[in-house]
């Protein structure tokens, strides 16, 4: 469903990604494991068109998306949830959801605010609250809900468990499994092996911008922990 080959990207003169290749098939949850600064977020941004690629090819479904602007990629049904949440703090919860709204898409679950409130009951109680007045965990829920409003077929989740209280992390893992049940394909970047273990079908290991391993979570985990 999402397939990348030979990705090269960076900031200014610094090259961050070296020939990154990965693939996510329909309905699967794949973890991109790596330490701080290994290139996880950069990979996700590059896939989303938020960072110009210097080389490489990305296919999403039947389309080549490596030269498309981010908004076109989003409209094709690839959702992106940034690691630092990036809630619109001046907008209310319901307005944040409105920004993400796109028409329903064949072959992907269709979301409405009402359905999202079932998934994230906390948000239902604070529809008119400003994004800036929410806790970190609430913001993390909102940022996922906001992306789901675009009815994506696949989701890029950048470190969804980062900086959250343990009880919220558990809730997040449940949410990801719920989304998988809905039929979404998910690529999530993680440093937290336990979290990845709890949600992912398989994993890639990224180190210094190179993919160093791929396969079942247990094998990749071993290599990751031995680094």
């Amino acid at each position: 469903m999402l397939e990348a080959r030979g990705l090269v990207a960076g900031y200014g003169r610094a090259q961050i990604l070296f020939d990154v290749a990965l693939e996510i098939r329909a309905g699967e949850v794949v973890a991109l494991l790596g330490r701080n600064g290994a290139g996880k977020s950069t990979t996700l941004k590059a896939l989303m068109g938020l960072l110009p690629l210097r080389a490489g090819e990305v296919r999403f479904g039947a389309e080549r998306i490596d030269r498309l602007p981010a908004y076109r990629i989003a409209r094709l049904g690839l959702g992106y949830v940034p690691e630092d949440r990036r809630i619109f703090t001046d907008l209310t919860v319901i307005e944040n959801l409105e920004v993400g709204r796109q028409p329903p898409r064949a072959g992907a679950p269709a979301w409405t605010p009402a359905r999202l409130y079932e998934l994230f009951p906390n948000l239902a109680r604070m529809q008119t609250r400003l994004g800036g007045r929410m806790s970190g965990g609430e913001q993390q829920m909102l940022t996922i809900a906001r992306t789901l409003m675009g009815n994506p077929a696949a989701l890029l989740l950048d470190e969804p468990s980062e900086g959250l209280a343990p009880v919220i992390v558990e809730q997040m893992a449940r949410t990801i499994r719920d989304l998988k049940r809905e039929g979404l394909a998910i690529l999530l970047s993680e440093q937290n092996v336990h979290f990845a273990d709890a949600v992912a079908d398989r994993a890639y290991l990224i180190e210094q911008g190179h993919i160093r391993g791929a396969g079942a979570l247990a094998e990749v985990r071993e290599r990751y922990q031995s680094l």
Binding site: P69, Y71, A74, F88, L91, E95, V99
Partner: peptide, 15 residues
């Protein structure tokens, strides 16, 4: 208003 705050995020949401 969303783009005023964070253009890139708005674009990533399909705007």
């Amino acid at each position: 208003r969303a783009a005023t705050q964070d253009r890139e995020m708005a674009a990533a949401l399909g705007v």
